[in-house]
Design a protein around this nucleic acid. Sequence first.
DNA 1: GCGCCGGATTAGACGTGTCTAACATCAGTG
DNA 2: CACTGATGTTAGACACGTCTAATCCGGCGC
Lengths: 231, 231
Amino acid sequence: MQATEAVEDYLKVIYHLVTEGEAVTTSTIARRLGVSAPSVSAMVKRLEAGELVVRRGEGGLTLTSGGEVQALRVVRRHRLLETFLAEVVGVPWDEVHDEAEVLEHSLSDRLEDRIDALLGHPAHDPHGDPIPPRTGPHNERWADPLTAAPTGSRFQIERVSDRDPEALRYLADIGLRPGVLVEVGARAPFGGPLWITVDGAEHALGSQLTNLLHGAVVTTGTTPIRRRRAG
Amino acid sequence: MQATEAVEDYLKVIYHLVTEGEAVTTSTIARRLGVSAPSVSAMVKRLEAGELVVRRGEGGLTLTSGGEVQALRVVRRHRLLETFLAEVVGVPWDEVHDEAEVLEHSLSDRLEDRIDALLGHPAHDPHGDPIPPRTGPHNERWADPLTAAPTGSRFQIERVSDRDPEALRYLADIGLRPGVLVEVGARAPFGGPLWITVDGAEHALGSQLTNLLHGAVVTTGTTPIRRRRAG
DNA sequence: GCGCCGGATTAGACGTGTCTAACATCAGTG
DNA sequence: CACTGATGTTAGACACGTCTAATCCGGCGC
């Protein structure tokens, strides 16, 4: 099956839904891609014919191994481009996602490899998302959300979801980036904000923001671990 | 009119044909783009409806001012990308054209400006082709072909056509790049090769190669002028 | 049980961009 | 003058990707 831009976009969205544990249905795909439900129906039929996805009762769709390979290729190009744009071109944190979104479809294998080498084969993009290897297994693990951290604990941020540029700008402003350590304070009741301390400053984060932050509770005394590049 | 990739490609080819002094006809466009003549007929009809080209008896088509603006935007992105890929990413001379060819359609204005600034607003791409400004007038002057230089003269190369990667590799190997000075030797008769001396070494160039080289005869005694960036 | 509601699909249409086959036109040449 | 060859157009088809409108279906409230 021909890997057009649309096909790549669908596979990528399906991959993300799967790894985020969301239902992979016509409506969730349509919502993510901003297209109508019938468009998704039609495309899914094509993807099934091309043996890139299969129906798996209830939960909805799954990628075949062939489909996953293609999805990972797109995810890899996207995250490599984000890293490249941020580190080499100096594109701000909150802009790299949108730029990579369009460039990812036009990146040749040759240029992909060159950028990968230039960056020293990075393992994570600027938001902390792992960059799949060109071939071989990939572990797309989502760390725990900040909301799961108990009051009084220390929490190290690993990933910051990259979808909302405005939120990203705010988070960057107050110093919330991958690798940063925060102290988890009180949680206001009835869906109220979560108080955290970062860099000695206190902030109240609404659920719209806390949902974007993933990481792990740090057992006391450990020095913050800075993320490093892969070998 | 919607500036799709296809539309951008057609406008770019028409622009190049015009500036190279070639006829802008259905068949020349078809040949350049590698599509059939009826495809060109159909697209030209759409471009006319969108007021991007007009028919101008005999010579064929011309770009309207609106069409030229769009064409120059594509040419600018292409040449900026070539420069960026060569200087920043380290892509070899003969590969930048093909890579830029696909990326040029996905480069946002924002990223274009950022790359332009990062490069210091370059005036020429690695092949010596002038980079159009984002707005305002642009002079796409083609210097004289090497074939026009008289035997015994010294010729400074300004532009090397970028279309043939194999030829580019060979030319780079023997040191023929923009800015380089060559001595024009004897011309073998009946379409035979042209002898030139560059870096003290003599080479016989067939017409396939001499057609790619453009520049100017240098009046004696002048030191070679290195191309520099614009202000 | 009936009706409603949300999700999914089918039906039908459209725009884009391409193709091949057939036809038209025009220049030159025997 | 009629044939040939190049060039260009029209006609008709197809693939892709999208849309809206209509239908279908399964669960739930009354």
